[in-house]
């Protein structure tokens, strides 16, 4: 197993990062309920191992692009939670000065390229970034994430075809959380093995337990090696689950409470890693409580930062239309 390759500190770091995403999203949900965050807000609670595990397997210079369920991945890219929370709250200190909102967040320095609101549009874009990488004779891989809903969009396959044809360094990561809004995978396709979706383009695919950090890490590492060897794209289907609704307005009546509870109780990615850490004496229960407190403080800082920041000046309305 790959976990043997990590130091204690690294494993604790991954745990804390997943916890950061969890607490960030919980807080975002809470602030949404209070009316501090508006519009659409898509939380990734339950999917933390995918963001953190894939990022952990990336190399310096690799780029990341995803859909509108994006806060978690941006946090995994080590962006400052304060500027993300401020963006959700529509403040001038937000990463897009309050002009992008939850679905359009960017951190170019951390190689996080959004945050895209149109289902599947980021797939050709990520492929194009990989094209640029190859054009510039760099070895940088582009991690391109999309959901089980996006896999039924045509442009995904147009991108697959060219990525494969031109052997582009792109890893496609399907975050299969089982529901595209309220429509389950089984109700939207006869072939629910999404990792097979690249086969007709010659793209190797693998199904991965997206609820386990180490499994995600290991599969992604293999994909990174595959790309670095010049073999072109690879496809990973991360089997994961979102605990909350599609967006904040979704009470999730299309699935049973038992189904959700079962995943929470038996497959939670954070609890799984915590149990591993405690069993292996990497961290004690007490220490884990301490980490949680640390994270909660960090989130509180982000909340305060967002609350106390100003809305953008009205003159901002007309800036950044053209460079």
């Amino acid at each position: 197993m790959k976990e043997e390759n990590f130091t204690k500190e690294q494993i604790i770091g991954f745990y804390k990062k997943m916890l950061l995403i969890r607490r960030f999203e919980e807080k975002a949900g809470q602030l949404y309920g209070m009316g501090l965050i508006g519009g659409f807000c898509h939380l990734s609670i339950g999917q933390e191992a995918v963001a953190v595990g894939t990022h952990a397997a990336s190399k310096l210079g690799n780029a990341f692009i995803t859909s509108y369920r994006d806060h978690g991945l941006m946090l995994a890219c080590d962006s400052d939670p304060k500027v993300i929370m401020a963006e959700l709250a529509g403040k001038e200190t937000g990463c897009s000065k309050g002009k992008g909102g939850s679905m359009h967040i960017f951190d170019v320095e951390k190689k996080f390229f959004g945050g895209h609101g149109i289902v599947s549009a980021q797939v050709p874009i990520g492929t194009g970034m990989a094209f640029a990488s190859k054009y510039q004779k760099k070895d940088d891989i582009v991690f391109t994430y999309f959901g089980d809903g996006a896999v039924n969009q045509g442009q995904v396959y147009e991108a697959f075809n060219m990525a494969s044809l031109w052997a582009l360094p792109v890893i496609y990561i399907i975050e299969n959380n089982e529901y595209a809004m309220g429509t389950s995978v089984q109700r939207s396709t006869l072939v629910p093995e999404l990792y097979k979706r690249g086969e007709s383009f010659g793209i190797k695919g693998k199904q991965v337990d997206g609820m386990d950090f180490f499994t995600v890490y290991e599969a992604t590492s293999e994909a990174v090696e595959h790309c670095h060897a010049g073999n072109g794209p690879m496809l990973l289907e991360m089997k994961t689950y979102r605990y909350r609704g599609h967006s904040m307005s979704d009470p999730a009546n299309y699935r049973s409470k038992e189904e959700v509870e079962n995943v929470k109780q038996n497959h939670d990615p954070i609890e799984t890693l915590k149990k591993y850490m405690v069993d292996k004496k990497i961290a004690s229960e007490e220490e884990c409580k301490k980490f949680d407190k640390e994270i909660r403080n960090l989130i509180k800082e982000s909340e305060d930062f967002a609350k106390h920041s100003k809305e953008p000046e009205s003159s901002e309305l007309y800036t950044d239309v053209y460079k």
Partner: peptide, 20 residues
């Protein structure tokens, strides 16, 4: 490119975002 307008337009956009 193959006959694949949204695909290559999106790829072009992504490459522009990445500096081309």
């Amino acid at each position: 490119t193959p006959i694949t307008e949204i695909g290559f337009a999106g790829i072009a956009v992504g490459s522009a975002m990445a500096g081309l």
